[in-house]
């Protein structure tokens, strides 16, 4: 196991090095930068600022500096926000994580339960109804459902706030603060769950349908086990195995934020910050964030491989 981990981690480092090179060149080679956008500056002032920010150095040297600092845990300074990139991440990422974690949890929970039940009762009216609803949810674009729910629950019924994370001007603390956040996050979480739950339910349903037909399920029934035990102890464990691969992909998604949802609900998350930085060509922030996603993706894959090994005794790690 430790030999395997050493090998895997060294591969990961190589992949990340290549990714960093790719990410850096992508942003560095794109014409224009943060300064060239600003029409208020004179050419002399622009040249001066480029000198200060080190943008006039050769590309390879700039990459070297960026990498060196990154390895020391310094991802640079956001030009637009005038704060260190990591400080900004810390400010915004947890807001996104909150939404993503709750909706991912709900998505998986609902998908597993509905997937199992509709596989068990394949072609029943419940199964058909679920399939219709799932296709409906999957077919509607997120901005439509988002705006639609805002219209109903925030504007017409006034049950929930239309956006933001806290009521404007609120300085609630403790429980009151938590309650306020929960109220604000309800709609975005519902929309994110609706969007994700469809494909995942179908995934679990089809896995479960395959597993239920296996001989060992027949054996479990022949032993006289209760149907619940057969389904959840014998079938579900096997049906969940292929989903472990997906767990790895969820990791970057948890921290990556959601551009559209955060925009619609005006949620102060990293997705919005990212989008905004694109317009401003705030390259240090963009590079830092893209690199962070790369790191999370690689770690996620490693985690899912290790989980696979734990969950399925047939899988050996080499």
């Amino acid at each position: 196991m430790s030999a395997y981990l050493t090998k895997r981690i060294s591969y990961m480092l190589i992949i990340l090095l290549a990714a960093s090179l790719l990410i850096f060149s992508l942003y560095a080679l794109t014409p224009g930068d943060f300064i060239s956008n600003n029409i208020k500056l004179t050419p002399e002032r622009k040249a001066e600022l480029r000198e200060i920010y080190g943008l006039n150095k050769p590309m390879l040297e700039r990459y070297g500096i960026w990498m060196k600092n990154a390895l020391h845990g310094d991802f640079g300074y956001s030009l637009a926000q005038q704060k260190p990139v990591l400080t900004l991440f810390n400010e915004y990422i947890w807001n996104s994580f909150l939404l993503a974690a709750v909706s991912t949890f709900l998505t998986w929970l609902i998908a597993v339960i509905i997937g199992v039940v509709s596989a068990y009762k394949q072609y029943s009216w419940f199964d058909t109804l679920v399939m219709v609803l799932i296709f409906a949810a999957m077919s509607l674009p997120s901005f439509f459902i988002g705006l639609f729910l805002i219209k109903i629950f925030a504007v017409d019924l006034k049950w929930l706030p239309p956006g933001g994370m806290l009521t404007t001007g609120s300085n609630a603390v403790g429980w009151a603060y938590a309650k306020e956040v929960i109220k604000h996050m309800t709609l975005p979480v519902v929309v994110m769950t609706l969007l994700g739950v469809g494909s995942l339910t179908r995934y679990f349903r089809s896995n479960m349908i395959d597993v239920i037909k296996q001989d060992y399920i027949r054996t479990a029934r022949a032993k006289g086990l209760k149907e619940g035990k057969v389904l959840f102890r014998h079938a579900l464990r096997n049906a969940l195995l292929p989903a472990i691969t997906l767990v790895g992909f969820e990791l970057p998604a948890l921290f990556g934020g959601s551009l559209i949802i955060e925009k619609i609900f005006n949620w102060p998350g990293i997705g919005q910050l990212y989008m905004q930085s694109f317009g401003l060509r705030d390259y240090p922030l963009l590079m830092g964030f893209t690199m962070l996603l790369a790191v999370l993706t690689v770690i996620g894959t490693l985690i899912s491989d290790v989980l696979y090994h734990i969950a399925d005794p047939r899988v050996r790690l080499h």
Binding site: D215, Y216, R218, H234, R237, N238, P313
Partner: peptide, 15 residues
């Protein structure tokens, strides 16, 4: 009680 034709697939692989 009952035993089946394919012992290889008649037991749950993860238990």
């Amino acid at each position: 009680s009952m035993i089946f034709q394919e012992p290889m697939s008649s037991l749950n692989p993860v238990l």
